[in-house]
Amino acid sequence: MRRHYPQHRVIRPMGHQGNHGRLAASALFLAGLGLLLFNLVASIPFGHAPLHVGRAILERASGETGADNIVTAILLGYRGLDTLGEVTILFTAAAAAGMVLASAGRGQAQGEDAGFIFRTAAWMLFPFLLVVGAYIIIHGHLTPGGGFQGGAILAAAFFTPLLASPASPFNHRVATLVEGFAGLAFIVIGLLGMLGGGQFLTQLFGKGAPGALFSAGSLPVLYLAIGLKVGSELAGLMASVFGGKEKA
């Protein structure tokens, strides 16, 4: 049996029904936590990071992985398996959000068209966003950026037209396919590394010349896979929130 609830009830401000105790408890907790954190941070003088593992990585990362961007070297070279887990978490969250929203009986376009100017501008931005996103992904081992950052820009390229007009085409099937194959590519590259008797995600190709586009072994390929996966995931997630016409 379902009770009928009044809709849109006003939210009462805090402290109406004897919430002072709760407020005091939170204040006490926050003060304690703040004190703890301050003491913890004070033990590391600012500007003099201890660099226990960091120093070794700074010295050896470029020689061991071939990547000029040391953050990339850590992310894909030293803890590539963790990054695979991270991508899996993102995938799970996106899938769960899509599931939660899909059961609401959506799928049809929502919201209003933002008008001719916005629509045109969004489509004019589209190629530039694609190029910038691809550049950032492909140069992830040389310059700041990488698969996650570039993937977010790729997603923006597909998502901006949807913001301008919910009736813009968005092909969920292609997004899902790209996402699946990108994830598969990451795992296949990892498994190929094991063929030569190495461990999961052992570098496949040579390290190449430092600073060259084709260097750092399989790291750029892995970042390309991550970029495509993140891009299609984010775009699909946004599209499932904001609608978007299904293109058959």
């Binding site: 990054t83 993102l90 939660v100 996650f148 984010l234 929130v241």
Partner: peptide
């Protein structure tokens, strides 16, 4: 970098649940 990516996923899921 990892934390930001995971934070995004958590945020998206939370917003979907709020909807």
């Amino acid at each position: 970098l990892t934390a930001i990516v995971i934070g995004f996923g958590v945020l998206a899921l939370a917003l979907a649940l709020v909807v």
